[in-house]
Write a protein that binds this DNA or RNA. Structure first.
Lengths: 138, 138
DNA sequence: TATAATTTCTCTAGCGACTAGAGGTTCAAG
DNA sequence: CTTGAACCTCTAGTCGCTAGAGAAATTATA
């Protein structure tokens, strides 16, 4: 039996976040001591690990709710889980593409500034004022 | 003289967002008609373009405040603008690195699920439950 | 000029995923 | 049995917007 603090130490998830996951319905409302304090068991430790791992991979709370739902119904087909993972992968790839375009522009802009001149001649500032200087859309 | 709606159409920035930028101090509080409606000129159009461009590149409102500050004091050294751009570039590169690690893991996880079996045997779900299956940290 | 349609005004609240703090209660060690 | 750490609930704040209510101003048409 873990207190919320012990669970937090075990999993690396902060205490208010654990309570937040309970509010969001990702963690069940566990049993309490007579003094109203939460007491967790192995099952909750594992589920919290699952949640944390999914969060680290960028899944939304909403998506995790679906994943947990599947996880607790092992007889249901797993196509939905695969779809969620592929959606997430698509999102990540989109973000990477977008960020790489930004990287190119920012590198170009940052390189143009040697920091020695006055702001009136600064390439960073003039680049921001004039989108036309950018090589691509962003 | 533009109304806020005209400014919005010109720049592609939504009306509530324009008012938000004013609240945040990025756009000056412009003159009003007798009926209290905002009227903008060329200067605001350009500044809003600057803001939008910087936002598109991922600069925070806070960073943009500094950039605008420099922009309106052309006599000051531009080293700060360069530093802000390099910070932003560093942020973007960090995000890219992180997302690329996620991409690898997600691709591995998603690939393991052909969607035909029951959730009880789903590779996506078991991967989420067991971080140890991951090739690297994330 | 009268009226109707559109735009604008301010203000409040909501999004996602937490995080921080106040003020009070319970637990565990000595 | 006292002390201090950990816990409880609740509210509000973070960021960068976005949506909606209800009222007032502006613009277009008859």
């Amino acid at each position: 039996m873990f207190s919320i603090g012990a669970l937090s130490r075990e999993t690396g998830v902060k205490i208010p976040t654990i309570r937040y996951y309970e509010d969001m319905g990702l963690l069940a409302a566990v049993e309490r001591t007579q003094g109203n304090q939460r007491r967790y068991g192995r099952a909750e430790l594992e589920r919290l690990g699952f949640i944390r791992h999914a969060r680290d991979l960028g899944f939304s709370i909403e998506a995790i709710r679906s994943l947990i739902d599947l996880n607790t119904h092992p007889d249901r087909p797993c196509a939905e889980a695969g779809a969620l993972a592929r959606d997430q992968l698509g999102d990540v790839r989109e973000k990477i593409t977008r960020l790489q375009r930004l990287e190119v522009e920012l590198a170009r802009i940052a390189k143009g500034c040697n920091g020695s001149g006055p702001a009136g001649e600064c390439y960073v500032l003039s680049s921001l004022a004039d989108h036309g200087k950018c090589g691509s859309e962003h």
